[in-house]
Design a protein around this nucleic acid. Structure first.
Lengths: 342, 342
DNA sequence: ATGAAAGCGCTAACAG
DNA sequence: CTGTTAGCGCTTTCAT
């Protein structure tokens, strides 16, 4: 078992040629069932395994899907990747994962690396700090299928999967209103990220529809992190009169806000209501457990991968229609927002 | 920019050959500075990028490092991967990540996939359920450098990085004793996993050294999960007299135990002390914050990658000595174990 | 239904 | 210092 067996070895063994062996192994229609069977047996016997490098070099396809996520430490992304992997595997693709660490430079490097690895397509969620999209444009120009999810950018005009962030924030805010909270603040994120802006609009519209004023003072703009959540909440709680509930742009921000609220000795949900966004793993662990908005992560990943598979089918010539999938957000009501105890 | 430029294009442009271009691009010593510069400029001008597939096919090396972890949702592993990536990148390697989902079959598939991808080496942490190691043995037989971390298996005789799990559990237990807890229980994991057994021994020895009895009743064997932690704690708390502190084999188990304790209306740390193991991200978020043992994750990853780099150097002939690196555990004292309030 | 031949893009002897 | 030559292992026309 010292030297690796190749299709030539199999061919020699059977007094045939490499071409036949290759075709047999690929279940090519113009090969007799008999030889197919023979080839397969010999392949097993000689412990043959395909050299994907050679195959890819020749065919130009690697059956590999590149995925770029900001961080694997955010369980949301880990979960989406699961969904992607499931569909990918089902179609014979493997997944090459790259973390951008929320750094646009690193993100560009990642794309470069994936292109060099000759991935057949890229599925990505952009960095919070990304403002220029030249690296993504290059992917498009090279005609490599590109799909975005969650943190998307419409100007790129690529297929994408998101949840209805506007609606999610709307539902979250409405829920707090129904619970009897009267002065609801919002901690938002960078406005150039579409989903954060959508959530802000959802929050504002819910207030308006319920006949509440939308006060600029009650909206804090942060950087979407535990730290930033804490600072923003500190600021919000210091205004007079203070808010009696907070809609956070996502769960880590909500966690920071929770720390701030606790440190001031205020009771959640009795004195202050709190709701997050993302349904991060920790949100159900903490005390009080955090109400939040679930984003259907697995499904999001599956849809994104599915979108890629469809792109591949759009054979040269007829460009496939630009599909944007919008999933429904699901309100997860836990302790942090249950003022009425219902 | 329709067709990709190859070294032949550059060669043609400069009236030289592909070989020279290749060497120039690789900074080969026997190429004049002048031509090197010329080649490099033309490469940039023609927007050349190396086809790694072809390069790897020819050279047999991919400059890719395969990493297998049980789950990306355990922040411990995510963090170790960070450490690995840092060192890998520094040496010009990229990282191909594979999740085994704690499933030995999936783990075997992953190894197979990495071998097919022709990775230059594999760094792995084995599944909790892995009892047979044939897939890892195949890696060894194929002379692919293999390094294990955290969940290691000594019978494989490969380089590895772990922390001193025995000492970690010893320190954790001793800390509880110092806090004045008198009846300290332990929730352990699958005994065929070395680190779980080491922690059990550390717990037991700490008790002995402090003159406490080691009671079999006070040791619960679980499967290392939130669920299992809850069940084990339920059982431990129902014996008479019940324990007044618990050392959990890792943080998710501790989390389950915390839920169990809370559900019985017992106060942590006043009535029951609790300490985990791993310093998972959530451990500082929860209430009360969880005391635990930090495993120096980043360093563990860095050391593992470093070990791989050294293996590569062990040129044919002199097999490098089998190195096993043991890192020091660091006690993280938070609220859940501070009985004295000191 | 199978074979022959021609590379995919690159690297590495071996010459000169 | 640079060119020549020969593939790495596989796929894919084009013949037969």
């Amino acid at each position: 078992m010292r030297k690796k067996t190749t299709i030539h070895d199999i061919a020699k063994e059977l007094n045939t040629t490499a071409a036949t062996v290759s075709r047999a192994l690929h279940d090519h229609p113009s090969i007799s069932v008999a030889t197919k069977e023979l080839v397969r047996q010999t392949a097993v016997r000689l412990n043959y395994r395909q050299n994907k490098l050679a195959s890819s070099l020749r065919s130009g396809r690697t059956h590999t899907l590149g995925v770029i996520i900001p961080s694997a430490e955010i369980s949301f992304f880990g979960s989406v990747v699961h969904g992607i992997e499931r569909i990918a595997r089902r179609h014979g693709y493997s997944v090459l994962l790259f973390q951008s660490n929320e750094d646009p430079a690193c993100e560009a490097e990642g794309i470069e690396a994936l292109l060099q690895a000759h991935v057949d397509g890229i599925i990505a969620s952009v960095t919070k700090e990304t403002t220029r999209y030249h690296h993504y444009l290059e992917v498009k120009q090279r005609r490599i299928p590109l799909v975005l999810f969650d943190r998307v950018n419409d100007s790129l005009e690529v297929p994408s999967v998101v949840i209805d962030d506007y609606k999610g924030a709307y539902l979250a805010t409405m829920h707090l209103i129904e619970q009897g909270y009267k002065r609801i603040a919002h901690i938002s994120g960078q406005q150039h990220i579409k989903i954060f802006n959508d959530r802000l609009r959802g929050y504002a519209d819910a207030l308006r529809h319920a006949g509440f004023p939308v006060e600029d003072d009650l909206i804090a703009y942060g950087k979407v992190s535990v730290e930033s959540g804490r600072h923003c909440a500190d600021r919000l709680l210091s205004i007079t009169p203070p808010p009696d509930a907070i809609v956070a742009v996502e769960d880590f921000t909500a966690l920071g806000a929770m720390q701030s609220i606790k440190s001031k000795g205020l009771a959640i949900p009795r004195e202050i209501g709190l709701i997050g966004f993302a349904n991060e793993a920790f949100s159900s662990y903490i005390t009080p457990s955090l109400s939040t908005v679930d984003q259907q992560t697995i499904k999001m990943g599956e849809e994104a991968a599915q979108l890629f598979m469809e792109l591949g089918k759009g054979k040269e010539g007829n460009p496939p229609p630009l599909r944007k999938i919008v999933l429904e957000p699901v309100l997860m009501i836990r302790e942090s927002s249950k003022k009425t105890g219902s």
